[in-house]
Amino acid sequence: MERIPILKMGRFLLVTVQVDMHDRLAMTLQDDLTGRIVKDRAHGVLIDISSLEIVDSFIGRMIGNIASMARVLDAETVVVGMRPAVAITLVELGLSLPGVRTALNVDRGVELLKGCIEERAQGNGHVAG
């Protein structure tokens, strides 16, 4: 069965979504990713969606779910590389992905994750946004 690969980058996991995601694939990714967070003891998840030409409410919900589940498993999620047209459409659709962190590209995403984790390590458990 088709699967979206999950790469390990130090304490982070990187998922690059490169195919037109159908619903089953999205569900599999959700399962795989939560499994890997626990197995690899990951502290952060980067989801690179720069290749995605659309994000509908189903995929949006999946991203939101992954972020929530990851948080329960003590990992932060950053969605990177959303295209302008996709962002405009998502806003119009009424989906603002509350609680999901975002970054322009993978490098920025890594910086953001490092920042979050440092913050947490310093003991102030506040997570903004």
């Binding site: 990177v80 959303m82 962002a87 998502l90 806003v91 603002s96 992905l97 975002t102 970054a103 322009l104």
Partner: peptide, 12 residues
């Protein structure tokens, strides 16, 4: 407001 929201989704 929509623009601000869209920019946020992109990470800016």
């Amino acid at each position: 407001l929509k623009t601000v929201a869209a920019a946020r989704l992109m990470g800016a």
